[in-house]
Computed example of a mutant assay.
Amino acid sequence: MESSPLVLWFDLMGVFFFALSGNLLAARKDIDITGGLVLGLLAGLGGGIIRDVLLGVTPLALSQPVYLVPPVVAAIVVYLLGSLIHRVRTLIVTFDAAGLGLFCTFGTARALDHGMPIASALLLGVVTAVGGGLLRDVVANEIPAVFSGSNLYVIPAATGAALTAVAVGTDTWGPVAATVLSALVFAFRMVAWRREWRVPAPVRSWTVRDLDVRRRRERSVFGRPGREEDDAEGDDDDGRDPGDDGAPHDSRGPRPDRRR
């Protein structure tokens, strides 16, 4: 199944979507095109490399050089069209969710194709989906989406991996099932992000009282979707303090020296 054109094209699409999220994150942080390419490579290829290393096979990103094309294309696209993009934060989450849906399904299917038990295949499917994004966020000094408390990330990936295992086990896995499951995970992730669905936090009562205030100051790109961050918020146009009206503090000016 791994040599099927379906697997190749869907896998390349997942690499491209994750690479776009990496390059957009680099643009948002004012990183140059080479740094964006690095983030795109980590996001697009990191999860698959981790999966294949755990499977004990040569990573597809290394055995098939075509996997290097989508990150390069993504870097060029963001470089040329970056000035036309205004809602970068939303696009990062959108492309990340698209890659999540593709990678959790095809990562699980690849693991099952190599004879892994169902539990191990589910784990590898989730690792494939979240591994690249985790590397991207850590390198970019961003709070990883896996650890963001304002949305669901691992649960949509685990759901897609479980449904993929069911489809493979019932011999219904194919182009239609792969497309439907990937779209389902994408929709699950985006709705969870938009509506800020959360999982229970058992240590919430053990932490400081100002936890919500501190989270708002963290400025995670995967945080609250309804509040677009403005890097210049709180700063005046001329760089002065908010309470400074431009008038000198002493209207009499400097005192001349008095010589005796």
Rank of each mutant, 00 (worst) to 15 (best):
M116C: 10
L68Y: 14
V185Y: 04
F17M: 15
L54I: 15
W173Q: 00
R259T: 13
G131M: 05
R198C: 07
G246P: 08
A247G: 05
R214C: 14
V154K: 00
V126D: 02
L42G: 02
L211M: 10
E229F: 13
T172M: 12
V139E: 07
A247E: 11
A61Q: 01
R214I: 13
F18A: 02
G99D: 02
L102I: 11
A177M: 07
R219L: 13
Y79T: 15
T105C: 14
D245E: 09
P202N: 07
D236M: 13
L25V: 08
A129G: 09
A157K: 00
M1C: 11
V199F: 13
T179W: 07
L39R: 02
P202E: 14
T170D: 01
V72T: 13
F10R: 06
A157Q: 01
V72P: 01
G82H: 05
V139Y: 09
G131N: 06
Y153M: 07
D245T: 09
P202Y: 15
F10L: 15
G47D: 06
F222L: 13
A140V: 07
D231M: 03
T164A: 01
R255F: 09
L163T: 05
P71W: 04
V139W: 11
P5D: 12
L54C: 14
D231R: 07
L163I: 08
T105M: 02
T172L: 12
R216A: 11
